[in-house]
Write a protein that binds this DNA or RNA. Structure first.
Lengths: 155, 155
DNA sequence: GTGCGTGCAAATTCTTTGCAATGCA
DNA sequence: TGCATTGCAAAGAATTTGCACGCAC
């Protein structure tokens, strides 16, 4: 996520850039994986110690509604959030380390056409998340499972 | 969802078919849309009045783990559940009435290849949900928006 | 200076757990 | 009959809300 760009967008919309919001943006910007509210709080507090959990929730909602952040439905629950890069993008989650990448060149026309044929629906939106193994984990081999106690399930 | 088939699967695995479980299966079977625990409870209680919410939760977990039901991440929250038809399938949600259909012929190879190229990940799993307008809603035109007070958001 | 944003604490909602009673196989 | 399964109530977690104060613009 481009923190500078996000900052500008807030400013452009007349939304105040407080220290708390900047801290949350920074946390999302530096994280390479989905963060839940608690994690965001912990990360962002290093930059803004008086940040509260309530504000994290409110900021998440704000950023998601503006398209600056995106929710990812994976692993434990659906509360994780990542910074969005592109206007339209999808998350690719690493099943081993939890890292999240984003890809935007999704050509779903043929899949959507097949679905439309099979169900009779007219498809207008798609929600897609992919999962697999990131380059780093592949490189470091099977040995490098990050969290032995916390196997990532796929919801 | 085929209730009879699901019933057989439970029996085959040596899992007891109680009146409560049958009622939950029936509710999922007759519903054409995702149901949250409360809704399942309400529907299933018409068939088994002494059913409790706790059991609904436990049954959902059971059915999902057996692949008999599937969670759908759409609309309000991620707690909705639908009966699954195929071994591997995806939900197609109607944005107007909430009806859920399932389609199974998803050919994601090209999309996954593109994602792999763009992110460097090796893709092994995909989670896909489509949304649009079902045949009925399309037929009854714009006028037929089901719930004016409850616009369905797309998570 | 003016509101928008914030933190705290309380309220609310959602989900899980413990345990004795029940009923399916 | 035996043991998986259930319901209730209570515990626990996650999220939201109310309100007075502080700070960005």
């Amino acid at each position: 996520m481009d923190v500078r760009l996000a900052t500008e967008e807030l400013r452009a919309k007349g939304i105040r850039l407080t220290r708390q919001r900047a801290a949350v943006l920074a946390a999302l910007g530096q994280a390479e994986r989905g963060l839940n509210p608690e994690e965001i709080l912990a990360l962002a507090q290093s930059e803004c110690p008086e940040l509260g959990l309530t504000t994290v929730y409110r900021t998440i909602e704000l950023l998601v509604s503006l398209g600056i952040a995106r929710r990812v439905h994976t692993g434990e629950g659906c509360a994780s959030v990542v910074g969005a890069k592109a206007e339209h993008g999808h998350s690719v989650v690493c099943l081993l380390c939890g890292r999240v990448a984003e890809f935007s060149n999704c050509d779903m026309v043929s899949v959507e056409a097949a679905a439309a044929r099979e169900t009779g629906f007219t498809i207008s939106v798609h929600s897609l998340e992919l999962a697999g193994t990131c380059a780093q984990c592949r490189a470091s081999g099977e040995a490098a499972h990050t969290s032995p106690g916390e196997p990532r399930r796929w919801a």
